[in-house]
Amino acid sequence: MVKVFEILEHTADIGFRAWGDAPAELFANAALALQSIAVEATVVNERFIYPIAAAGGDYETLLVNWLNELLYYLDGERVVMSRFQIDQISPERVSGKGWGEQRDPARHAPKLVVKGVTYHQLAIKEEEGRWSAQVFLDV
């Protein structure tokens, strides 16, 4: 299987690098990466569809805001999701959805409390049609 994200190192904290063939795929994979750090999500029933949307002025800001929306679902609404789909994306706005269910402590063991998504060394690049994003999280 093609790797869609990897976890990165930082003395006190943790981050990830995600890839995609287009911004839409990149944002979906970044969401998977964030969730994999926060919670065990190998068994998720797709019981509900959760809409996720964010705004920003550029792709970096948009990604931070998008991930913060997901973080609120994870930590505020206690939801876990198995996959994500982006319906519309521009540097100003992203809208999409995730399939998942309410977190069940027995199946979705918590991993790390992600306090927030940071701008620290945040970078989104496109090279030969391949998009990548580097994001660090405060945990």
Binding site: V64, N65, G116, Y119, D138
Partner: peptide, 9 residues
């Protein structure tokens, strides 16, 4: 955490 996130934005 959320207060910080809200105001950073």
């Amino acid at each position: 955490h959320q207060v910080c996130t809200d105001f950073l934005a």
